[in-house]
Amino acid sequence: MPEPDAIQVKDLYFRYEDSDTYILKGVSFSIERGEKVAIVGENGAGKTTLIKHFNGLLKPTKGSVRIFSIDTKTKTVAELSRRVGLVFQNPDHQFFEETVEKEIEFALKNFNFDESERKRIVSEMLRFFELEKYRDRSPFLLSGGEKKRLAIASVLCYNPDILVLDEPTVGQDPIQKEKLSVLLDKIVSMGKTVVVVSHDMDFVAENFSRVIVLSKGVVIADGKTENVLTNESILNKARLLPPQVTLCAWSLSNIGLRRDIIRVDDIVEEILLLLQRCAPC
């Protein structure tokens, strides 16, 4: 029997009860276990609404969302959250404890981890996210970037099978972004699934092999990042801009560069090849 998809979204329609406009209009896709996928699209395209379906905060108006083949309609948010960790965009929407340490511990307590394990995990998280020196500090006193890391730690700590992050790079400097991308790879290498919603096209280009484009509640593209982010008509429709590397490739295309390059290392390599070929002439 083949392994069930980590996330399977089938013809998902969603509208709030008190409104008659659908925010999601027939969204379908599936994400396999161990995949790392980016969801992109303009503001108001329905990205946040979509990911709130993954742990059952929202239930489909029509259609279905299945997590490891379990219909989200049949489970509570707490049951689903144990497997699907959802990190919200704004960390200020969740901190309430007196210390950073307790903030991480919150979910562990809710999911009934015993005390010794909680201590171990908290220390591990603090170390990994470079928050050790803030252990006893109030979460409210952290800088924007630190808060963001704490928010991720406070979900990652209980080791969910699927990690969903809403705009994780906002307010992060390049060093932290780099660390984030290493972290995401590490999580994936442990057989977990990662879904990221992001506006940061450069981050998406450098770190994701698959991207889903949402526009006005509909999936308008789902495929390899280098195909999707270099497709002008898709980008225009979703009000996105190509990564700057791609713009460079386009500008160099009439002197022989491929048009579907999205990563810095790739374009550098291509330019070197190009220069070598030109060297004799």
């Binding site: 390049p174 450069d202 990564p243 330019i271 070197l272 220069l275």
Partner: peptide, 23 residues
């Protein structure tokens, strides 16, 4: 700059990577 925590445009990154390869 990057090590100081400042994001630089990708085109600048390309410049430095080419420089590292003696271009």
């Amino acid at each position: 700059l990057v090590s100081k925590g400042v994001a630089v445009p990708k085109v600048v990154e390309i410049y430095f990577k080419l420089k590292a390869k003696n271009i």
